[in-house]
Amino acid sequence: MNMTIAISTCLNAITLTLQQHADEVAELDQAIGDGDHLVNLQRGLTALTQDSSSLDKMALPEALSKIGMTLMSTMGGASGSLLGSMFVTMGKTAKNTLADFAGLVDIYAAGVAAVKARGKADIGEKTMLDTLIPALVSLQASVRSNDSLMQAMQSLQQAAEQGMLSTKDMLPTKGRASFLGERARGHIDAGARTSQLILSAIADEVIQNQ
């Protein structure tokens, strides 16, 4: 399977999808958060995009670490520390992992574990993890059943979307939305939505790049 796509290509795709869903995402964090999630992510993305040509030239472990450090030092907020930790950890893991499909899934798994550890959270708490974990489960299943890359990416997209949608009826127990208690039910979590948009955009790029 050929999975080499440039980081800059992914960044452009992510920037585009967030732009297209900007109002929706902003409103999600306004409804049950504090309204800054879109801007936080975009600040991080802008910083990455400025570095994208040098990121493209780096080896995967270095690139992932660099992305993590950049997100960590530009985003702020809950999502900044979580995505920062995620990528820094993926960078560390990538050093000792073969970057084939199964290896990449392992690297991603380490990133998700880092989010869980940093956020002291798990699936079902109405956070980005409700996207990230189902996506991981789907990827791991694809590895086990030797899915085609196309199949793997399509299942990933479905799993991420289902996970994201599942946050709607959840009672939040982590992050800002938890303070609203029952009032937060009926709203999709902003971080779950952006994680899903990002994973889906990357999957689209992988598919197109085949």
Partner: peptide
């Protein structure tokens, strides 16, 4: 000071 309503960063 972080951005508005956004925690500052570790650095």
């Amino acid at each position: 000071p972080g951005q508005v309503f956004t925690s500052p960063t570790p650095d």
